[in-house]
């Protein structure tokens, strides 16, 4: 992960993105665009760091989220990018990435994200009488299908749609900037992320 200075620097990019209005849906609130841009940048930084330090710590505790919120994030991200013939978001530890980004994000954005998790649980309790993480996979998928639906949402759904947009973007960024996502799943050589360029070994290109 980058330093907080990296992320601060990239707030400029957020503002630029907002100024152009280019990256997204015009109706997205500021915190949505801000968190997506922050995670985008953190993903790039991490992909570089990952190449030089692929090992991850076995013991880890969330810092921005509570253990229960972290569990919800694990379930939610795995639903977005599941295990197939390659590991999914859970295997790629996307929850840690999200926790890292949230930790470095401004307080307002972090709180908005946590409110989104709360919205998800409330919605799940209304529909299924169960917190989201404890609902059945079919119920979880049902809820996410509602959040993925095209068209004009009901007003009370908007908070959920905003949250889902953030979580989905962060999951995708967090997943596809790992060894698992980039190399195993996409088959990308990941040459932009080599820890160091060993040099060209073509005999005809040597001095």
């Amino acid at each position: 992960m980058g330093t907080s200075e990296d992320l601060r620097l990239n707030r400029r990019r957020v503002l630029r993105t907002l100024a152009t209005g280019a990256a997204g849906v015009a109706t997205s609130p500021l915190w949505v665009e801000a968190l997506i841009a922050l995670s985008d940048e953190a993903g790039q930084i991490r992909a570089h760091a990952h190449a030089s330090q692929p090992a991850v710590a076995a013991s880890w505790t969330p810092k921005a989220l509570t253990p229960a919120q972290n569990e919800t994030v694990i379930v939610l991200t795995e639903l977005i990018i599941p295990e197939t013939d390659t590991p999914g978001a859970r295997g790629a530890l996307v929850n840690r990435f999200i926790d890292d980004v949230l930790q470095k994000a401004p307080q307002g954005e972090r709180e908005s994200f946590v409110r989104g998790l709360g919205w998800l649980d409330r919605q799940s309790r209304t529909l299924f009488r169960s917190d989201f993480a404890a609902a059945t996979p079919a119920q979880q998928a049902d809820l996410l299908t509602r959040l993925s639906a095209e068209g004009n949402p009901a007003r009370e759904q908007q908070a959920g749609l905003d949250f889902f947009r953030v979580v989905k973007a962060m999951t995708i960024t967090g997943y596809y900037t790992t060894e698992i996502g980039l190399r195993q799943e996409l088959g990308d050589p990941g040459q932009l992320y080599l820890p160091r360029f060993a040099g060209c070994d073509h005999p005809e290109h040597q001095a």
């Binding site: 992909a47 947009r165 973007a169 995708i172 960024t173 990308d188």
Partner: peptide
């Protein structure tokens, strides 16, 4: 790579 995340969403 940027296509894999920012646009894939």
């Amino acid at each position: 790579v940027s296509g894999a995340h920012s646009l894939s969403a």
